[in-house]
Amino acid sequence: MYEFRNDYNSVGHPKVVERLMDQVHTVYPGYGFDQASDRAKEMIQEKIKRDVQINFVPSGTSANILSLTANLKPYEGVVAAESGHIVNDEAGALEAVGHKVVFVESQDGKIKPQALEDYLAQDHDFFNILPKIVYISNSTELGTVYRKAELERIYKACQDHGVYLYIDGARMGSALMSPACDYSLEDLAGLCDIFTIGGTKNGALFGEAVVFCNKALGENFHYYLKQHGVLTAKGFLMGLQYQALFTDDLYFENAKIANSMAMKLAEGVKEMGLDFAYPAESNQIFVSLPEGKLEKLAQTVTFEDFGPLEGDRECVRFVTTYHTKEEEVQGLLDSLRSLVG
């Protein structure tokens, strides 16, 4: 079976696991106030090259929901693309704690800057929520990657209207290493108020780094984490993992491998004459297949069914990782060819 369902389907990169095993007899203080976490934060900050606040949390959902709600008053809400992770993939967590999500026009998973500017410029009277944070993902839930000009325009609109910009970076490694990306991690810190550096989907066993570029938004954030049950007692485990990920650029090398395998897949799909449901820009490849083919495909390949498309077509998602091999990509392509050849 060729595994392309997701990018969190293994224990973790061997170098991350080795780092944990090397420290198995070391004793650390609790709750992330330890030398391992401190060093990991220093290593990340050295890449960002600016004064930021960094907190580690165990999951992407906890990173999103707590970073957002910690900076929202009860009458304030979040602006997102309709395909956003907080909209469709977190069981309504944000709205469950009392904050509405409103949508603006988007394309291929990315908020359109003009649509955002138009929405924020409206008169938001007290009959509706007051928008306070714009949420975007990079890469998006549809595998697309924001360009620097798009981020600059979105952030400018936020600043002009007193709104914060939050970037969900669960797949930030893949975004930054994408051939479509024209900025670095250092650049990113000047393009938003908060962003995350996802570890779970790029070689960590678990864990996300929340980066507060606007440090005022992270004031006393560890109290908020503790109150909500995610200030992990063994926080040093995330510190050790991020040390490994930011040693010799492993974080970026993992993403490069995942992306290179995705591009090989995309090349094969294109040569086969199949259409992409969304642009192939990162480690998520969305393919349009004739209706009724998925059951046969599932006999040899794992994937996500993204539902029907126009014209009796179905959308499937294939995700590559740092441990995807060329022969696995070829096996997937062979399976696809047997369906449509």
Rank of each mutant, 00 (worst) to 15 (best):
R5F: 00
N6M: 09
K15N: 15
D22P: 02
H25T: 14
V27N: 12
Y28M: 10
P29T: 06
G32N: 08
F33N: 08
M43T: 13
I48S: 04
V52K: 12
S62C: 06
Y75N: 13
E76N: 13
G77C: 10
G77F: 00
A81Y: 00
S83F: 08
A91Y: 11
K100I: 00
F103H: 15
Q107F: 07
D108F: 08
G109C: 05
L116H: 05
Y119D: 04
N128L: 01
N128S: 14
V134W: 06
I136M: 09
G143R: 06
T144C: 11
Y146N: 06
R147S: 14
K148R: 15
E152V: 12
R153F: 00
K156W: 06
D160L: 01
V163Q: 09
L165R: 02
I167A: 06
I167Q: 02
D168Q: 05
R171I: 00
G173W: 10
M177L: 15
A189R: 10
T200D: 05
A209Q: 09
F212C: 07
G218T: 04
N220P: 04
Q227M: 07
V230C: 11
G235Q: 03
F236I: 05
L240A: 03
Y242E: 03
T247W: 05
E253W: 05
A258S: 15
N259T: 04
M261P: 01
M263W: 11
K264E: 12
L265R: 04
G268P: 04
K270R: 14
M272P: 14
P279L: 01
N283G: 06
F286Q: 01
G292E: 08
E295N: 13
K296N: 07
A298E: 10
T302E: 11
D305I: 04
G311T: 13
D312P: 05
E314M: 02
V316E: 00
R317W: 05
T320H: 03
T324D: 05
E326F: 12
E328Y: 07
Q330G: 13
V340G: 14
